[in-house]
Design a binder for these strands. Sequence first.
DNA 1: TCAATATGGTAAACTGTTTTAACGGTCGAG
DNA 2: CTCGACCGTTAAAACAGTTTACCATATTGA
Lengths: 379, 379
Amino acid sequence: MAQFTKTEDELTPVVRERARSISLGDEKPSKPISVRDVAKLANVSVATVSMVLNDNPRISRATQMRVQRIIDQTGYRPNRLAQSLSSRYTQVLAVLLPALRHGFADAYFGELISGICDRAGKLGYKVILEQAKPEFIRSKGYIDIYERRYVDGMLCLGSNDRHHYLAEFSDHRYPMVVVDNYFSQWGLDFIVCDYASGAQQMMNYLLQLGHRKIGLIHAAQEIRTARDVTEVYQQKLQGVGVEPLKSWYQDGKFTEEGGAAAAAQLLEQEPRITAIFCTNDKMALGAIHYLNRQGVRIPQQISVVGFDDTRHAAFVNPSLTTVHLPLYEVGVLACERLIERVHGRTEKVAERLATHLVVRESTAMVPALQNEMELLAGR
Amino acid sequence: MAQFTKTEDELTPVVRERARSISLGDEKPSKPISVRDVAKLANVSVATVSMVLNDNPRISRATQMRVQRIIDQTGYRPNRLAQSLSSRYTQVLAVLLPALRHGFADAYFGELISGICDRAGKLGYKVILEQAKPEFIRSKGYIDIYERRYVDGMLCLGSNDRHHYLAEFSDHRYPMVVVDNYFSQWGLDFIVCDYASGAQQMMNYLLQLGHRKIGLIHAAQEIRTARDVTEVYQQKLQGVGVEPLKSWYQDGKFTEEGGAAAAAQLLEQEPRITAIFCTNDKMALGAIHYLNRQGVRIPQQISVVGFDDTRHAAFVNPSLTTVHLPLYEVGVLACERLIERVHGRTEKVAERLATHLVVRESTAMVPALQNEMELLAGR
DNA sequence: TCAATATGGTAAACTGTTTTAACGGTCGAG
DNA sequence: CTCGACCGTTAAAACAGTTTACCATATTGA
C-alpha cells in the first residue's frame, strides 16, 4: 500500500521499476494495474487520472501529459466493468433476433447485422447477440438486459405484429429501435426499407411487360412490411382491372422449400399464370428450382421475381430480377439513431430508405404478347 | 438509511409497502432495488442475500425461502456489472470474425455462430461480436477485451496461418478456442471438421465414377483445412496414377464470382476436364452458374461438386453433390469447451468432427465410361 | 460434562472506476 | 489590502455486488 513514495526526486526510479516488472511480464499474473497505481506513479489523485482518461478540460496540459506518460508506460487499461458500474453507461448494444432454427445463416439478417456491427464498432460500442426464444420473452429477458445493465440499448430485428411485448417500449424508457419494420400502434422508433415503393416499381415493371395473371408467393402477413407488399400487389392489379383470385396467393413461409411448394401449388391451381412475384429472394430461389426441374422455361414461359436482392440472387439460373433493399444501410442508421437515443435524443426516429428495382434475367415479356410483337415485326 | 426497522413484527407491513411502490411503477425512475434493499426487507445481511442468489449451500432452507420471497416480490435483479466486477467473471464470450465486407451474411459463419449462440445462451453466457479489422489487431484489441473485462473467453472463426497474433494465446492465459481450423504450431485449443476425411470421401466417389481429369477450384491456401483438402485431392489423383497439371488448379477466392471465373479458366485451359471439385459451396454455385450459361450440361458433360453443404446447395440446378460439414455442432462444442477453459480446464482441447458425403444431382459417371457401359449393356 | 466440530449467519473488506463537494492558491477588481 | 471568482486538484462518497474471516449456537464424541 505504502510501497510508493511521493517525493518528487524518487519518482523516476519508481516508474522505471514498475514499468520493467510489467514489460517483463513476470509469470505470476501480478494483479493488473489500476487507477490507483497510475495515480501513485504520477503523483496525483485517482480523480485526476480518471479525468485524464475521460479528457476532462479541468485538467491542465502539464498534468494530463504527465499522467498520460505513466499510462502509456504501464500499459494501463481501465476496467470496463468498473467504468460502466460507476458511469451508468455500458457501451454495449443488443441485437435481438427471432429464434429461427439456424437463424444467423441468413443473408437478410446477416446484412443488417453487418451494418449494425460496423457502425457500432466505429462509435466505440460492442454488440451482443440475443435470440428471442419463447423463454426469453416470457421471462422478460428483453427488460432484464437493461435492468441488469448488460446493455444501453437494443435493436429489434425480424419483429412482427404478434410481438406484443414491444408495447413495453412505447414510453422510450429503454432505448430501442425497430429495424426494417414498423408499427403504427406503439409509437416505436424504427428504420425501415420502403417496401411499398419497391413493390410498386416491381408491379409496374411486370405490368409493363404485359403480365396480368401474376401469382404471389408471400409469407408472414403478421409483418407490416410484408403486408405492404401484398397490398401493393393487389392494388396494382386492380388498377389494371384484374381482381387476383384467392388461388393466386400462396404462402411460401419465407424459405426455399416453401417457395418451391408454393410454386407447385400455383402451377397446379392456376396453370395460365405468366409471372410469379415472390416477396423474398429465398422463396424465389425455391420457386425457380421447382420450375426448372418441371421443365418450365424461365423467363420464356414464366417470369419469376424476388425481393431483397441478396447475394445469391445474382447467381441463380436464370439470375433473379428483384428489388434491392439497402439492408446494410438500414443497420448502420438504426445503430446510429439508437446511440443517439441512449445519449438523450428525444425526437422520434422514423426513417424510410429508398429501394430500387434490379432487372436481371428471370423476367420477360408475357409469351402471348411476345408472339404478337414478333408478328408485328413481320417475322 | 435507518428507515426500515428490524423487529420481526414490523416486517410484513414494510414488505408490503415496498412491494406496492414497485408494482405501481411510480413515474420517477425510483432507483432500482439493490441487494441492500432486499437484505433489509428480509432482515438478513447483504452477504446472505448474495449467497441465496448464488445458491450457496451454507444458507438454510428457511432463510433461502424468506429471501427468495422478497426477491420475487420486489422483482429484484442483480446488477451484472457489479456481479462481474467483484466475482471476476463476466459471463460473456466474444466471437471473433474476419473482417469481410459484409461478413455476417455468410452461410458458413452463420451456421457456426448459430451453434455458438444457442449453447452459450443455454449455459447462461452472452455473446459479443467482434470483427478482426486491421486496427483491432494492431492495437491488440483481442487482448483488450480480456484485460478490460469485456469477456471471459473468445472463439476465433475464419483464422488462418497469417494470423501470427494467435501465438499470444499459446500460454492459455486468456481462454480461446480456434473454431473450424487448427494450427500445428502454437498448441492452441481447437474444434474442427474433418476436412481431410471429407475430401477423401469425395475423391473416392469421383474416381469411382471414372473421373480422372478433375479440376480443383480452391482458395486461401493459408488456411490449414483448405490445404488439407488440396493435399487429399492431389494424393488421391496420384494414387490412380494421375499427376494433376498446374492448370487444373484454379483460385476461386471463396466467392461465387471467383468460382465462376475459375470455372471459365479451367474450361479454357483444360477443355477435356470431366469433373470440377470446388472446395466450398459458394464457388460451386458460381461455377455451376457459369457452366449453365455456357450451355454445358451438368452432370452429363461435367460433374461439379462442392464442400460445406450450406442450405443453398440443395436449391441450385442441378442440386449440388457436396461434403456435409457439421458446422452447427462445431460451434456448440467449441462454445462448451471454451467455457470449460474459463472454469479452469487444463487439458488441451482438440477435436475433429466427422464429415460425410451428400450425393445429389450434380455428379454422374464420366461421359466416355457412360457410353461404354451402355454398349456393354447391349443398347 | 466438556472440548471438538458443524451449522448458519454476519460485518467488513474488496472489486476499480466516476463523480461531487470542497479546498488552497492565484488573480483582478474595488 | 481585502473580497470574490476562478482554476486545478483532491478526498471521499457513490456504484452494486462477492468474498473472507470470524462469531455465535447446536450437535457430536469421548
